[in-house]
Design a protein around this nucleic acid. Structure first.
Length: 220
DNA sequence: AAGATTTGACCGCG
DNA sequence: CGCGGTCAAATCTT
C-alpha cells in the first residue's frame, strides 16, 4: 500500500524530471547550434586573410607530425565514446586556459595511437562554456570504431578553431563552471539510453525508504 | 596496491 | 631560444 504510493510518487517525480530535462536539453542544443554558427561567422568575417596564412602554416606542421587531425567544439569534451588517459597539460601562449593532452587508454595494451587535446575556449558571460577538442590519429583499439562524438559540432577548419580558442580542462576538473548535477546530466546525455536508465533508477528508488521531510512537503 | 592524474623536466621544431 | 607536445616521478584516488 505504502510501497505502491511511493512508487507512484517516484514515478511521477521522475516523469516530470524527464520532461523538464528533455526540454532543457533540446533548448540548449538549439541555442548552442545557433550560437556556434554565429561565432563562426563572426570569426571568419573578422580575419580571413590572417586566418588563411596561419591555418596553412599550422596545418602543414601538424600534418607533418601527426597526419590528419579533426577538431570539434563541444560543451562536453570528455564523453566521446572512448576512454582516455591524461598525460599532460600546458599553458598556451595568449590563452587564458590551459590545454590538456590525452592518449587512448589502450595505447599500451593495443598500441592504439589515438590522442586528443582539449582546451576551453574564451567565452563571454552570455555564452555557455565551450571546448575545442582536436583528435589526432584514429583509434585502432578494438571495440572502439571511432564514432563521431555526440553533441559536438565539427568545425570546417580545425586549426582555426584552436587558433581563436584558449584553454583546457582535465578530465577531473571537468567543465569548471558546471555543477555536479550538470556533470551527471552531461554524462547521461552523451553515453546512456536515457529512458532505460530512468526506468532503472525508478525501480531502484521505489524500494528505497524516502526521506520523511520530503513527504511532509508534498501536498495531496 | 594498482591505476589515474599532476606537474616539472625534457626535447624537437621553427 | 621560446613554444608546445611528451615523458615520467610524485602524488592522488579508488
Amino acid at each position: 500500500m505504502m510501497a505502491d504510493l511511493r512508487s507512484e510518487l517516484v514515478s511521477q517525480l521522475f516523469g516530470n524530471l524527464q520532461d523538464c530535462t528533455s526540454k532543457a536539453i533540446s533548448e540548449l542544443q538549439t541555442h548552442h547550434r545557433a550560437q556556434m554558427i554565429d561565432i563562426d561567422r563572426r570569426r571568419l568575417a573578422a580575419n580571413i586573410s590572417d586566418c588563411k596564412k596561419v591555418c596553412a602554416k599550422k596545418k602543414s606542421r601538424i600534418n607533418s607530425r601527426y597526419g590528419d587531425s579533426t577538431s570539434y567544439m563541444t560543451p562536453v569534451p570528455h564523453y566521446d565514446g572512448h576512454q582516455w588517459r591524461k598525460y599532460g597539460q600546458k599553458t598556451i601562449k595568449n590563452s587564458k586556459h590551459q590545454r590538456c593532452y590525452y592518449r587512448c587508454a589502450y595505447k599500451h595494451e593495443q598500441n592504439c595511437m589515438a590522442t586528443k587535446t582539449v582546451q576551453q575556449q574564451e567565452h563571454n558571460t552570455t555564452e555557455s562554456v565551450m571546448y575545442t577538442v582536436v583528435y589526432y590519429s584514429h583509434h585502432t583499439c578494438k571495440a572502439n570504431t571511432d564514432p563521431a562524438p555526440p553533441h559536438i559540432i565539427e568545425t570546417s577548419t580545425p586549426q582555426s578553431a584552436m587558433m581563436s580558442s584558449d584553454s583546457i580542462i582535465g578530465s577531473q576538473e571537468i567543465v569548471s563552471p558546471h555543477t555536479g548535477s550538470h556533470k551527471i546530466l552531461e554524462n547521461e546525455l552523451a553515453t546512456l539510453q536515457w529512458t532505460e536508465d530512468m526506468q532503472e533508477l525508478l525501480e531502484k528508488l521505489a524500494d528505497v525508504p524516502l526521506d520523511s521531510d520530503i513527504w511532509e512537503m508534498v501536498q495531496f
